[in-house]
Simulated scan of single mutants.
Amino acid sequence: MSAASPTIIVRASHPLCLSATLSESQQHSIVQLLDLLPADVIDSDDKTDLSKPALIIKNMVDGRGISCPMPLLKTKVALRNVNIGESLYVVATDPNSQADIMAFCQQSLQTDSANPLALTINQATVSDNKAASDNHSKYSVDTIYHFIITKTDSN
């Protein structure tokens, strides 16, 4: 992205709410992945600033291990089932996903989209990949790109 591009502001310390429509395994996976994020990005304990609106995570796209453009395409499909005010949690390991998803959200803000998208969380984490290290692979560390995309009202 060029320096002249508008900046998407990443807001921190939102209270989180996992939708009841998520399966137990999805909820468990989301909690494990969110635990990788630094505490100042998401604060899910009782000290959370309750004056900020809760992020209601309605669905998750797990784009780990798949290359672009698939994480973005899966994100677009999943957003069809996300209502205004709800969020989609996306994780990916392909570095191109970060630029693609940022541009997609930014484009929704610049066009006359009926439901602009707010990129609430955009954070990369590095985690040890235990399975890869057990196999003595040279790829023992993965960068995971985390996104929480909230569908907003155009009014």
Rank of each mutant, 00 (worst) to 15 (best):
M1S: 14
M1V: 10
P6D: 02
P6Q: 01
V10T: 09
R11Q: 07
A12M: 11
S13H: 15
H14G: 00
H14F: 00
C17E: 13
C17M: 13
L18T: 04
A20C: 14
A20N: 15
L22T: 03
S23Y: 01
Q26K: 06
H28M: 11
S29P: 09
S29N: 11
I30S: 03
L34H: 03
D35M: 10
L37M: 05
P38L: 02
A39M: 11
A39C: 11
A39T: 14
V41Q: 04
D45M: 08
D46V: 10
K52Y: 02
K58I: 07
D62R: 01
D62G: 05
D62P: 02
G63M: 00
R64Q: 03
S67N: 06
P69L: 02
P69F: 03
P71Q: 01
L72A: 01
K74R: 14
K76H: 11
K76E: 14
V77Q: 15
L79E: 05
L79D: 05
L79F: 06
R80M: 12
V82W: 01
V82A: 04
N83E: 15
I84W: 12
G85I: 08
S87G: 08
S87P: 04
S87M: 05
S87T: 03
V90E: 06
V90I: 11
V91D: 08
P95N: 09
N96A: 06
N96R: 04
Q98V: 12
A99N: 10
A99H: 12
I101W: 00
I101S: 01
A103W: 03
S108R: 02
D112A: 09
S113D: 15
N115R: 13
L117S: 05
L119R: 07
I121Q: 03
N122I: 12
A124H: 09
V126G: 09
V126H: 09
S127N: 07
K130A: 12
S137A: 09
S137K: 13
S140H: 12
I144Q: 08
Y145G: 06
I148A: 00
I149M: 06
T150F: 08
T150M: 10
T150A: 07
N155Y: 12
N155E: 13
